[in-house]
Design a protein around this nucleic acid. Structure first.
Lengths: 195, 195
DNA sequence: TCCATTTGTCAACGACTGTTGACTTTCTAA
DNA sequence: TTAGAAAGTCAACAGTCGTTGACAAATGGA
């Protein structure tokens, strides 16, 4: 009899959720170093010591905050000619839609100076992006290379548009992104490739 | 009679250069926050106070270390069908060749959590990448958008290959990068575009 | 009501940070 | 040789950081 979720949403659960929400917001905006535990506590209207009580350390808080589930669609079932478009559409949903949290922003903001975040980001690539691309890559041996190229374009777009906020990339409409980046991803995934 | 370079390479000049070299190395590897003045001083085998004496503050030291000159080739004179290839070749030289310093790595490593680095990176885009693309973009009005797309791909590739060190992207050979990313850049710069 | 557990408050710790000023050593020009 | 500038050393400052432990308040079941 394993009961993972005892029915009472005790008071501590709410506090715990508040801390986590504040942490996700501040980590996404200022990165691991830039968001102090005191900042998180202030943003959650709570004492800094409570942050440590609920999450044992800043590292563990960051680990809890930096969870990412891209929920990428299976590419096998859709039309083979619209793979690139499907990918970039899902990408825009993840970043700008309300459902997906700031998980990717959290990782990307800290990955350049925090080895844990970098490793986590490599994990997201290996366990979420790569399998989806591998399922449709023509010679299976090319799967890694194709997935890597896809990641480089998507990650660069995210950097320019959401983190660096490069004006001309911010100005791009959804349709412009889909019609320009879609074909790139399409070629990276199923295009004829170099040996 | 303006003499910008008095002939004597005084002792202080050498020390100054040592500090700057150590700073560029550490900033490129650990970012602005991750590289302390004490680290830089230790790496240059001098006292931390000297770093402040020669450069007035850490911010100023970082500003001096984060200078970038891409020396992008003028795209007008070359064959219009090899623009993408030319760009990606130059990109690889900048990152892996011995001539260009770690300037781009310094900026990219800190741009996600340091507003000065972010602004400087946007400057590099606006003053070095954009003009080169604008010179050949077909409707001049598209120049910004095209330059932005080019930047997103190049910046993403740099992130994955040199900072994040994503294994399949690190494993790519120069030829593979040229033959895969080249066409992408070609289309971004001179391909038919969406309104 | 009473007591034990939970939840929250407060002050402080040691470590690290950028930066400063007083001091000594070294070099250079007269 | 000597005075003055340049170069380098050292200890300490004020601030921030993550983290801790002692203590008070609130809560909830018996």
């Amino acid at each position: 009899m394993i009961e993972n979720q005892p029915k009472k949403p005790s008071k501590s659960d709410r506090t715990r959720a508040q801390i986590l929400e504040a942490a996700r917001l501040l980590f996404a905006e200022h990165g691991y170093d830039g968001a102090s535990i005191r900042d998180v506590a202030a943003h959650a209207s709570i004492d800094p010591a409570m942050v440590i009580r609920y999450f044992r350390s800043k590292d563990e808080l960051f680990a809890r905050a930096a969870v990412v589930d891209l929920q990428l669609p299976a590419l096998r079932v859709i039309d083979r000619t619209t793979i690139g478009e499907t990918l970039i559409r899902r990408f825009l949903e993840i970043w700008e839609g309300p459902a997906s949290g700031p998980g990717m922003a959290i990782l990307l903001r800290s990955a350049t100076s925090n080895e844990f975040a970098a490793e986590k980001l490599r994990d997201v690539f290996g366990n979420q992006v790569r399998p989806v691309v591998a399922a449709v890559a023509d010679p299976a041996a090319d799967a890694d290379r194709r997935a890597g190229l896809v990641s480089s374009q998507l990650l660069g777009l995210a950097m320019c548009r959401y983190l660096l906020r490069l004006p001309p990339v911010v100005a791009l409409s959804h349709d412009e992104i889909i019609q320009n980046v879609g074909p790139t991803l399409q070629r990276y995934v199923v295009g004829e490739d170099v040996s």
